[in-house]
Computed example of a mutant assay.
Amino acid sequence: MYRFLLTPRWWGINVFVLLAIPICIFLGSWQLSRFEGRVQDHRTATEQVEAGSKEAARPLAELLPVDKATSGRRATATGRYGEQLLVPDRDLDGKRGFYVLTLLRTGSGKALPVVRGWLPGSADAAKAPAAPTGEVTVTGALQASETPGDNGVNAQGGLPRGQTAAISAASLVNLVPYRLYDAWITLDKGDSGMTAVPAAAPDNTGLDLKAFQNLGYTGEWFVFAGFVVFMWFRLLRRELEFLRDAELGLTPDEAGESRSVADPSGV
Rank of each mutant, 00 (worst) to 15 (best):
M1P: 07
L5G: 10
L5V: 15
W10Q: 08
V15Y: 11
F16P: 06
V17H: 05
V17E: 05
L19M: 10
A20V: 06
C24M: 13
L27V: 01
W30K: 00
W30F: 00
Q31H: 13
R38Y: 02
V39Y: 02
Q40R: 10
D41T: 02
H42T: 03
T46A: 14
Q48P: 07
V49I: 15
K54H: 13
L60Y: 06
A61S: 15
L63E: 06
L63K: 08
R73E: 12
R73S: 12
R73H: 11
T78S: 13
G79Y: 09
E83S: 14
L85F: 11
V87W: 04
D91M: 15
D93A: 14
F98Y: 12
T102V: 10
K110E: 06
A111I: 08
A123F: 00
D124A: 07
A125I: 01
A126N: 05
K127W: 00
A131H: 09
G134H: 07
T139C: 00
T139D: 09
L142C: 03
Q143G: 06
P148R: 07
G149R: 03
N151F: 12
V153K: 10
V153M: 11
A155F: 03
G162M: 05
S168M: 02
S168E: 06
L172I: 03
V173N: 11
V176K: 07
R179P: 00
A183W: 04
A183E: 05
T186M: 03
G190R: 04
G190W: 04
G193C: 12
G193P: 12
G193D: 12
M194Y: 10
M194W: 10
M194V: 10
A196H: 12
A196T: 12
A200F: 00
A201P: 04
A201F: 03
P202E: 08
P202G: 07
D203W: 01
L207Q: 01
L207F: 00
K210F: 13
Q213Y: 14
T218C: 03
G219I: 06
G226A: 08
F230A: 11
W232L: 14
F233Q: 14
L235S: 12
R237D: 14
R237H: 14
R238V: 02
L243K: 01
G249I: 09
L250N: 06
A255I: 07
A255N: 08
A255K: 05
G256C: 00
V261G: 04
P264D: 01
